[in-house]
Amino acid sequence: MAVNSALSRPTGRRPASWGTPLTYALALAVAAVSIAPVIYVIVGGFRTTPQIVADPAGLPDPIVWDNYARVLTQSNFWQQAFNSAVIALGTTLAVVVLGLAAAFVLARYTFRGREGLYTFFTLGLLFPAGAAILPLYLMLRDLNLVNSYYAVILPQVAFSLPLTIVILRPFLSAIPRELEDAAAIDGASRLGFLWRVAMPLSRPALVTVGVLAFVASWNAFLLPLLVLGDVNLHTLPLGVQNFSSQYTTDTAGVLAFTSLAMLPALLFFTLAEKQIVGGLQGAVKG
């Protein structure tokens, strides 16, 4: 189970040593293939389009700041970043709150139909989210939700709930009964136990599900494409796509816009790598 392995994993049992040259050569090759295209895009943003056309693989000479400046001042970049942030934060908050409440019941209450309810949620993991996109659009249209943040947030919450519950439930189950008894003796109700004990104790798992929901929302494309027709509500992925099809001849500008759009994801990943990787791994092991 995720919780136990996280606690018992020996850290630094043996000091890391230098690997063989072959190990480094292979690792370097793999790393290069992974990030060379990304570096190319970022570096390309510092060149001019004629330079890129003349010598696609060259280095900036001289360094041109104009593309980045143009994207940051003249495009909808900031508006789209704001929309992405609102939608991602709204999704994350709702997923964590609703997922915690449901997982708490599924973990700490004994009642008829509990396993059935859990299975009902886990069915969502089998469900191809993309398949339901057309009827989902029609339903949001009939509810007059199209062209609002809710049109993206609500379905994203629904689609993130199964994984959230699957990750949180074993974590909440693993909290020792003695803690709950102690809280009861101190006069805490079950809800008090959830708020004062279970929630603080499961913070690592909550951070993990939050980060996963945030990244999924930040990168989402299909749902926003269908339900956000209003340009002022466009998120960054839609913005990147529009910019690249609108300014097909401005290769340098597209490179700069693309770099700026992936920067938040890269920063976020560097900061939260443990949660993202650990979360995916925990979900599979749990």
């Binding site: 890391a16 690997g19 790393a31 990244v215 839609l238 790598e273 990787v277």
Partner: peptide, 22 residues
């Protein structure tokens, strides 16, 4: 186990966190 392994792991995961559109 080799020195710098964490950095290589981080770099290998980069494509996965980038948005599909990007």
């Amino acid at each position: 186990r080799f020195r710098g392994r964490a950095v290589f792991r981080l770099l290998v995961f980069v494509p996965y966190v980038l948005a599909e559109v990007t």
